[in-house]
Write a protein that binds this DNA or RNA. Structure first.
Lengths: 210, 210
DNA sequence: TGATAAACGGAACATTGTTCCGTATTTGAA
DNA sequence: TTCAAATACGGAACAATGTTCCGTTTATCA
């Protein structure tokens, strides 16, 4: 059990692993800056690699999009665990919902790609749900048990509700809206979205059966 | 009032008009066959025209898409009037709803383009509604007056309902689903859609307040 | 340190939107 | 009918972008 990979032959070369990570990181940045339709070359250049390198790891452009998306889903879902250990249940729940809200807004460009009919993205909705639903479910259950939230809320319903809330509040274009500031929290629409989210959170905490 | 164009200088050359029509017709065919993402060259070739000619009339690819869409909206809306004069009110209503249903299904590819965030398509939803709503409104009113349909149905509600019905029933890809037959009426999903539509039509005709 | 497999970089290719311009056609008048 | 000007035509050429190929470089291991 010394080797970390079971089954496959050899382990990946160090530079290969480093580059894969650089590409993913660059893609995340570029997608956020120039939208999901940004040229592959731009991503490669940002990552400091040639297109050949990029394509060896991600044979299709859509593979890269999918990988970045999944990676960010993972990160967001992982934050649920972190928050749960670092904060009291109600606070953890509230913080994660904001985190999730930010995720939705910054993925606005992706959303349209998902519904583009390209089969490459068919698996993403499932991935989305199967990661976020349990994450939120745990936060909800813990908060309910601690008496810090009502217990009659379905995790998936809440995910969808906030998803709708957030995507309605953000500007519609694919190209990453305003260039004024980098922080999505300071977009006008975002403020409104947060107010609505606070309303929901209050409802969760102080509603009936609390 | 002898000249048909008021304000502009001269009238368009005969070959120009002929070509514009050929391009629109070709685009309609190609979009239906290969999807809205079909190459401009393919459309030009189908129309028997050079790309230069196509681009003089439609400076952007999206202009052509918009033009085709509007043209088909016009055609569908115009059919409402034709049907109204050729058939008794209830029959006209019923026939047009099927016609509209077919329109929706064959425009499935367009639907995703509309929601792509491209500002070129921003005006289309309005165009859609402002043409179809009055058309259906007239049919509904006539049928209601003749006692052949209930009178408490909102035209726009019905348009949306059937729109949802039809787009749910058709295959999801952009590329025009099965190559088996050309007739959309014979796709499996279409049969189901028609059955649901019949249910609605029956409801319209024999429901309360008939 | 050297052999070898793996990975790298980026030039080259294919596809597609769009522009340009020399040539052909239509139009209106002599 | 004939001719000149205006208009439109066709398609080569350009630009942007996804993808492939291959000669060169680098990591790994003995």
């Amino acid at each position: 059990m010394q080797e970390e990979n079971t089954g496959t032959k050899k382990r990946i070369r160090a530079d290969a692993a480093r580059n894969e990570d650089a590409v993913l990181e660059a893609a995340k940045t570029v997608f956020a800056t120039s939208g999901v339709d940004a040229p592959v070359r731009e991503i490669a250049k940002t990552a400091g690699v040639g297109v050949g390198t990029l394509y060896r790891r991600f044979p299709k452009r859509s593979d890269l999009v999918v990988a970045v998306f999944k990676r960010e889903v993972d990160a967001c879902a992982a934050d649920a665990k972190t928050l749960a250990t670092d904060h009291p249940p109600g606070e953890a729940l509230s913080r994660w919902l904001r985190r999730y809200c930010r995720f939705i807004v910054t993925k606005k460009g992706l959303a349209s790609a998902l519904h583009s009919g390209d089969p490459a993205f068919d698996a993403l909705p499932d991935y989305f749900r199967s990661n976020f639903e349990p994450a939120l479910q745990n936060l909800l259950a813990a908060a309910a048990e601690a008496g810090e939230a009502r217990s009659d809320i379905d995790a998936y319903d809440l995910l969808r509700a906030i998803g709708n809330l957030a995507s309605a509040g953000s500007t519609s274009g694919g190209k990453a809206g305003g260039n004024a500031g980098d922080d999505p929290d300071h977009h006008e629409g975002m403020q409104h979205t947060y107010r609505m989210l606070d309303l929901m959170i209050d409802g969760l905490r102080y509603g009936k059966s609390g």
